[in-house]
Amino acid sequence: MENSFLIKTKDLVKTYPVGHTTLFALNRVSLGFKPGEFAGLVGPSGSGKTTFLNIIGSLDSPTEGSAVVMGKNVEDLSHKQAAELRNRSIGFIFQTFNLLPVYTVYENVEFPLLLLNLPPKERKEKVMKALEWVRLADRAKSKPAQLSGGESQRVAVARAIVKKPSIILADEPTANLDAENSFNILDTMEELNHELNTTFIFATHDEKVIKYLRRKITLVDGKVTKDEVYEQKNSKGDI
């Protein structure tokens, strides 16, 4: 059972010095995620959701404890190895979309593939397929400034999924979207989760997102206070 975890953290601690005191962003968090999960970390601002995503995304390292992602302990990874892990296995979706402003939609989605050194033809096929998934193939030549918030986040989703990573980490993906766009994005992610068996882990306090989760982990002051798993789809508020 241990081996089936895609991500496994044990007694994860992350502290920050604040003046003369120490702030515990994460306080002995032990969690495991299996392939295909559609899970979310929920809790108020400052509860440690983003910090947890950053550590399992190998963007940050823990103060104590361990985080094993795809069989690799992130603390042991060099800067280059961590970058390699992110490039091959992890996709990120951010609250503010973080699209590269001077690139077109196509070029933004193509960006992670360039690092994988894929041939141009294969890159093009993958980019167009990803854009079709998020129903933005017709906006391939647009620049991010020409897109609405919902469209921008769909581009970010396409960029995250284009390399078909095992894990997608989404930090408040709907925070800057209206309700309609939020549901569209969440429907898209849910479809991808089903179709590609990609593990989605959200950090959110948005009720719309929470309704879609099949696993809800509640964090308060850096500690896991609840870890609830739903057998059925949690959308439309039917549970």
């Binding site: 963007l59 280059k80 970058a83 992110r86 490039n87 990120f92 590269l100 960006f111 992670p112 960029r159």
Partner: peptide, 8 residues
């Protein structure tokens, strides 16, 4: 963003 996508 570039670092998140795998740039060193």
């Amino acid at each position: 963003s570039m670092m998140a996508m795998g740039f060193t």
